[in-house]
């Protein structure tokens, strides 16, 4: 018979309540040997029982943490994760704040709608794919294909802040939002195809980036006062999140390149009618 790795053997919420310590609106969940769905079932149950803060301990690869927490009317929850959350952390996230004390895997903030994700460590590939709003802070570095097709509309401006560096295809097809790579401790970024197919949004990259590392649809423009002001705010927030207060000037004391799309319609000329 066909096995379902996601659903087979999933226990009911009642059976799982033993994994939770509930205290004054804070639920502490021991995620050890919980399956993806079990952990998310429990998280939802805790919020429905009034928890506004969830502390997840011993997290080890559980996927979709936070994705289930969509409520109408909306509720905002603070989630602290100890360990390593699995793929799609905060996918479709509806306004919650997630703090990871550890590294994250692939797909952090996939199609995230609103909220905040703070990772005290590194993250894998496809971070912030199709992100629509909110903020993501990654203290260290990220993998390939991050910020692909980020979007933005009016006051919904998603922001991805990466402390060190990223791999290839950063901001591919980017349609809106902001990506900031601070380049802390990085002499030269080694990623290529940055912003290929970019047609909206903006990227700020601290440290050395050569023209041949950029996609053809990207242009480099001078930073103006407003850009520096924005960066200062971002760096301040970054330092506050990761308890690095006092390092702001050091982080900002290097060259930053501002990347914007050359055209809103990069492929408008390839067709005949």
């Amino acid at each position: 018979m066909l096995k379902d790795p996601y659903l087979d053997g999933v226990r009911s919420v009642e059976e799982l309540l033993g994994y939770v310590d509930f205290e004054d609106g804070t639920a502490i969940i021991d995620a050890k040997d919980l399956k993806h769905k079990e952990l998310n079932d429990l998280m939802k149950e805790c919020v429905l029982r009034g928890a506004s803060r969830l502390i997840l301990k011993n997290v080890c690869g559980q996927r979709y943490i936070g994705s289930r927490l969509f409520f109408n009317p909306p509720k905002r929850v603070e989630i602290e994760i100890y360990g390593t959350p699995g793929n799609d952390l905060g996918a479709f996230l509806a306004g919650h704040r997630i703090i990871v004390y550890g590294n994250a895997q692939d797909g952090v903030g996939n199609t995230m709608d609103d909220g905040e994700i703070v990772v005290h460590g590194r993250a894998g590939d496809v971070v912030a794919m199709c992100m629509r709003g909110g903020k993501i802070f990654i203290r260290d570095y990220v993998g390939y294909r991050c910020a692909i097709h980020m979007k933005g509309y009016k006051d919904k401006v998603p922001t991805l802040v990466i402390g060190q560096t990223a791999q290839d295809f950063l901001g591919e097809y980017m349609a809106g939002g902001r990506v900031i790579v601070l380049g802390i401790g990085i002499e030269r970024h080694r990623c290529y195809y940055i912003g290929t197919g970019m047609h909206g949004g903006v990227m700020y990259i601290g440290g050395k980036v050569e023209k041949h590392q950029l996609g053809r649809e990207v242009g480099v423009v001078e930073m103006d006062e407003e850009d520096w002001k924005f960066l200062e705010d971002v760096v301040k927030e970054y330092c506050k999140n990761f308890e690095m207060e006092g390092k702001e000037d050091e982080i900002l004391g290097k060259k930053f390149s501002k990347l914007i799309p050359v055209s809103k319609r990069p492929y408008g000329r390839v067709y005949s009618y």
């Binding site: 996939n110 809106g176 047609h199 809103k264 990069p266």
Partner: peptide, 21 residues
């Protein structure tokens, strides 16, 4: 449309060939 799709007015709405995830 720009509101529903969340992209600026007059921008090409590009759907990549694969899902990148």
């Amino acid at each position: 449309i720009s509101e529903t799709r969340m992209i600026p007015e007059g921008t090409d709405a590009l759907s990549p060939a694969p899902h990148h995830d």
